[in-house]
Simulated scan of single mutants.
Amino acid sequence: MFGPLASLKILDFSTLLPGPFASLLLADMGAHVLRIESPTRMDLLRVLPPHDQGVSASHAYLNRNKRSLALDLKQPEALEVIRQLLHDHDILLEQFRPGVMERLGLGYEALKAINPRLIYVSITGYGQTGPYKDRAGHDINYLALAGLASHTGRADSGPLPLGMQVADIAGGSLHGVIGLLAAVIARQQTGLGQYLDVSMTDCAFTLNAMSGAGFLACGEEPARENQVLNGGSFYDYYRSRDGRWLSVGSLEPAFMKQLCTALGLEDMAKLALSPQPEHQKKLKDALRIEFEKHDFAELSALFAELDACVEPVLSLGEAVRHPQLQARQVVTQVPRGDGTTQAQIACALKFSEGLPEPRHIGAQLGAHTDEVLRELGFSAERILDLRRAKVVL
């Protein structure tokens, strides 16, 4: 094993998406990630379609490069295993509702007494405090409460379900990894770990970025289609004659000039700089008319030759085949364990020293239970006893 995070050993108690995506990033960068999974309460990601050779494609991707220990945390003997693991696994990631780990005897205060270097990361919908801390939620709810949904979508039809998990990934996963690695750096200075409370709603709120800054400092409330970047200007999607779409982001005058010249709208370019809504509407209407005169392939070929910030809206299949994404090697082949491989999304980070090759797709439940217990010094007889007692699977 090598990679920038090869010195990190992580216990991952999370399921579904936010925690597993975070630990996927860490594992791809060389960290040793051990999933602690319930043998009685399956991670629903394991059964999420579509399936490839009987295995959920999502689970195979999100849990690649990780080992799986099936351990019933409700049984006292399980605590013995966790305590032993904590001697060299000094980072813990969990995604239960507040209080669950404490009730299991696995809260931060209890575990840092075993290992003061422990970095303990909790990812939840609403955080460990506040009136919503025990409330259920999903990505769409976090985006709604964080104010993001109020200024996305169309004015006449409302917010759109995005088809991707913004709060889960940009909120929980990425903020969780940033905070975890910051705690690792702090530990290098102090020798001590710490607790990190990651609220997906809090993190989603920060994604308001420019709109939020404008509101808090100037009182300017963002709304749908009333800003430059949310449909309130020409910066938008335009339909071709054959029903496909292209994106137009020609914000700078040089790019707008190329766009308008290519479509025979030279006199319209100056409207792009106008803050007046009527001018933006006039420009958008003109662009809409011209785009709808041409088929998608024709427009794609036209703008491929120009540096105008106009790009086609591609399907996933088209994106995989696009020369830019192919050059960046965004797809990797991951061993299944039977001599074959599965195509998966590659780690997006490019290190000059390289990263470890993907080792395996997401493991079967408890695939590494015996291996992990042997490493901890458990005898074959003791492992068999734990299996008989259904402590492990």
Rank of each mutant, 00 (worst) to 15 (best):
A223E: 11
R387C: 08
S58C: 13
R239A: 10
Q333R: 14
A170V: 09
K350T: 07
V100S: 08
L34Y: 06
L44F: 14
L283S: 00
L143P: 04
A113Q: 13
L246R: 03
R41C: 12
S300A: 15
Q128S: 01
Q84D: 08
D52A: 15
M1E: 14
V228L: 14
D285G: 01
I36L: 12
Q333F: 02
S56K: 07
K133N: 15
Y120V: 03
D139G: 05
R244L: 03
R135H: 11
G147E: 04
L384P: 01
L216W: 10
A27Q: 11
I82Q: 05
A60V: 03
A272N: 04
E252K: 05
A136T: 12
D90R: 15
I383L: 10
A327P: 00
G171S: 11
D28V: 04
L196D: 02
G171L: 06
L259S: 02
A60S: 14
D72I: 01
R288V: 01
R103D: 09
N226W: 04
R35V: 09
I114E: 12
G3E: 08
G105H: 11
G362N: 10
L44P: 08
G19S: 10
Q53P: 08
E37K: 07
E278A: 15
R187M: 10
P159V: 02
L93E: 02
A363M: 04
A78W: 00
E94I: 06
D236L: 05
A27G: 11
A155F: 02
A348M: 10
Y61P: 00
L148A: 06
S199W: 05
H138D: 07
D72R: 05
I383A: 06
R97D: 13
V392H: 06
M29I: 02
P49N: 13
S274N: 10
V248Q: 02
Q329G: 03
I91L: 11
P312G: 05
G54S: 07
L229H: 06
L314Y: 12
A182W: 10
V331C: 13
V47P: 00
R35E: 14
I91V: 11
G219F: 00
F205D: 04
L251C: 02
F96N: 14
A217W: 12
L143A: 07
V248L: 14
G176I: 09
M29W: 09
F378L: 09
E305H: 08
I361R: 01
F96R: 10
D28S: 05
L143E: 13
A269P: 00
E353W: 09
M164D: 05
G243D: 11
V313Y: 04
